[in-house]
Amino acid sequence: MTDQDARVVEALLFLASEPLDERALADAAGIGEADVEEAIEVLLERHAPGASGVVLERVASGWALRAADEAALACARLLDRLAQRPLSKAALETLAVVAYAGPVSRPEIARIRGVAADNPVQSLLERGLIEEAGRSDRPGQPLLYRTTTRFERVFALEEGRHSLPPIDELGEDLPGPDEVRSRLVAMAAEQAVSIEEPGPAAESA
């Protein structure tokens, strides 16, 4: 790996509007992947937080440059992004469903959340956090949605969706479906018994 290799990789990352993996960088630069990895090491130092206004980071299973945190406010002012409203609770829940269960259709999102998902889906589409991903084989062939690379960058997911915490670890204090089911079944059985207990007198009542 030469100094020039590092500079070429830096230029590729500067131009790219999506994270680039080692292979894409190697193909474009015309060097080996091992050389790319060395170049990345050099660039990580050059573009470390605090050392540069542009930070190199591992995100969405690739490498990408972004504005340093200290410059984010100024950049947001330049790009007129200050007025963007935070994600609503409904949008966050819908995003969680798409991220964990995607590609998923709007009716499926509505089934899981118990409410219609039209507005949150539209809002997430407009923000570029989810995108269409073909159509389902189910009746009616509803559109499917999946999360975007932009979603992985906004949420700083190093290896994309693989960096999301396993859903089972998220609500450890929450009972699992089997546990809830068995408790409810037990409760139903208990209630049935207690109603039967009064005997013939209750039946005649």
């Binding site: 829940e93 969680a96 469903v97 899981i112 959340r113 929450l174």
Partner: peptide, 14 residues
Amino acid sequence: AEYARVQAAARWLE
């Protein structure tokens, strides 16, 4: 139970 996990995931994202 499914919805509770979705809510937990949404909180994680937030």
